[in-house]
């Protein structure tokens, strides 16, 4: 809202500039109409479908030849597989590998949605809290349920820091408990916030490009932001996944 108001001021000054940095995030029905019920095919549906196609194209089509000497696509599929597999194994150990398809699903979805969001005129799925909150809650619920199923009540030991002095432990327990429940919030807002901010900033710069005097600067700025956003797209997916692994480790080995 702040950016929009800021843009509006500029529009008022220059008379020609139009800033709608947040319009790119509007959820619209694909086939007209303006009511959105839960099943309406929207641009969300479209880009979710494209994400699925990209993931299938990379991981399924890419590996379909099962070549011992891989093609480029197969190499990429194998590198992605190895990247997440190694991350999960390093953090959670061998028993964490049961969750490999789950973690891989999260990573592939986020990284694909992030990069697809950088295609001009596209829709960024992961810039929406509805999406990231669901993802974060999935992780949170999985970790909590797995923690209690595997460790029973001793999972609560996660909050009882046995290495601290006895007097401090209740206070630490409260802090740990709060931090545990804040996890899904930070987990989801970090991802959506990063994506939304970057895309909005690019739109603001794009709005300035209509002014002849500043347009070279603005185009340079968009280019630079785009590079930065490519980095952010990967780093945020990586961060989300590695945090998922760390939380899963808590569920598997709750002792500090």
């Amino acid at each position: 809202m702040a950016t929009e108001a800021h843009g509006a001021e500029h529009a008022a000054e220059t008379g020609g500039l139009v800033f709608h940095p947040m319009d790119q995030f509007i959820v619209k029905p694909l086939f007209g109409g303006d009511t959105i019920s839960w099943y309406t095919p929207t641009n969300v549906t479209l880009w979710m479908a494209i994400s699925i196609l990209v993931i299938v194209g990379l991981l399924v089509m890419g590996s379909s030849r099962r070549a011992i000497v891989p093609t480029r696509m197969q190499s990429m599929a194998e590198m992605t597989y190895g990247f997440i597999h190694k991350m999960l194994e390093d953090i959670c150990g061998k028993e964490g590998l049961k969750f490999f398809p789950y973690v891989m699903t999260l990573f592939m979805f986020i990284v694909t949605a992030n990069f697809l969001g950088l295609v001009p005129m596209s829709f960024t799925l992961t810039s929406h809290f509805a999406v990231t909150v669901v993802l974060a809650l999935l992780v949170f619920l999985t970790v909590t349920i797995v923690g209690f199923v595997k460790n029973g009540a001793s999972f609560l030991g996660l909050f009882w820091v046995s290495s601290a002095p006895l007097a401090l432990r209740p206070i630490l327990a409260v802090i740990e408990l709060i931090s545990y429940f804040v996890r899904p919030v930070s987990h989801s807002i970090r991802l959506a916030g990063n994506l939304m901010a970057g895309h909005a900033v690019m739109k603001v710069f794009a709005g300035f490009a209509a002014l002849t005097i500043v347009s070279p600067v603005s185009i340079l700025a968009i280019t630079a932001m785009y590079g930065l956003e490519l980095l952010v797209a990967f780093v945020q997916a990586y961060v989300f996944t590695i945090l998922t692994c760390v939380y899963l480790k808590d569920a598997l080995h709750p002792s500090h």
Partner: peptide, 29 residues
């Protein structure tokens, strides 16, 4: 101001996200 906070689109997004995640999970696993 923020389409992200337009709660009327949440059920739609959550539904399609669930479908997508299930499809990706099945394809991957």
């Amino acid at each position: 101001g923020m389409p992200q906070l337009d709660f009327s689109t949440f059920p739609n997004q959550v539904f399609w996200l669930a479908v997508t995640l299930v499809v990706i999970y099945l394809v991957l696993s």
